[in-house]
């Protein structure tokens, strides 16, 4: 899977871009946490064979969550979320959902792929390829294949039985916690991922500097609400230092 730190960085950028007035450390923590949830299915894979990039990467989860959120906030006479947490709660819920989907999509657009319809349909999908215009070949697109026996098909690296996605929790195919194997905990695997992380840290630093100088209270809250996760804590603390 794409390193979880990259998903956290993407979520931080989305939070900064979409939360609007609801942006503070607590809401940032919630949104970043939502982007970490998909990768927790690596722990499920210790029990369920091949669950990495499948169990919590299934699109059924965000679709169900979006349906529920829409029903509660738009269709019911009295929304539970709005009564409990107000406008901010609704905004944070939608942005957290977007961050979850963005984290799943990050893996979907990588060669390792995602089992999109797990557990209804056990197959990994990976959207890789290129879209270019060539003066000799015209528009060339290899992300999806159109026509053929399937109307629309993307590449597939296999099923949960044949395709194992390596993670530091479960580095080898199969269930059960193994000892004596090498575990790799990647923070950044490619140059562009480093740039995404740098961009997220820089954007948060800019946002906190400007909010410190403009807003008097209300925007900067205690950092106690940030979930105690390695990635978030790293981002949060470094940003806090910059902003002081």
């Amino acid at each position: 899977m794409v390193p979880t730190l990259v998903a956290a960085a993407i979520a931080a950028l989305l939070a900064a871009a979409l939360l609007g007035p609801a942006f503070d450390r607590r809401s940032l923590g919630i949104v970043v946490f939502a982007a970490l949830v998909p990768d927790l299915d690596a722990a499920v894979s210790l029990v369920v064979y091949g669950a990495t990039n499948a169990a919590f990467h299934s699109f059924l989860l965000p679709v169900a969550a979006a349906g529920l959120l829409y029903w509660d906030t738009a269709r019911r006479e009295r929304s539970w979320l709005a009564e409990r947490y107000g406008w901010r709660g609704i905004r944070i819920a939608w942005v957290a959902l977007a961050a979850f989907v963005a984290a799943v999509a990050l893996d979907l657009f990588s060669p390792e792929g995602v089992a999109l319809f797990y557990p209804l349909h056990d197959r990994f999908y990976a959207v890789t390829g290129r879209l270019v215009y060539s003066t000799q070949n015209g528009l060339v697109q290899t992300y999806v294949t159109l026509g053929g026996e399937n109307v629309l098909a993307v590449g597939s690296p296999g099923t949960t039985a044949t395709h194992h996605v390596e993670s530091w929790i479960n580095p080898t195919p199969g269930t059960g916690f193994e000892t004596g194997v090498e575990r790799r905990f990647p923070l950044v695997e490619r140059g562009w991922q480093a740039i995404v992380v740098i961009a997220a840290v820089a954007v948060l630093a800019i946002r906190w500097r400007s909010s410190d100088s403009v807003v008097e209270g209300g925007d900067v809250v205690d950092a106690g609400g940030v979930p105690d996760d390695g990635d978030v804590a790293e981002d949060g603390s470094s940003v806090a230092e910059v902003s002081r």
């Binding site: 959207v127 270019v132 215009y133 060539s134 003066t135 992300y143």
Partner: peptide, 14 residues
Amino acid sequence: ERIVPIAVHGWQLY
């Protein structure tokens, strides 16, 4: 041949 890339690899499209 002139190639105008719009996106190459999954992550660029992402």
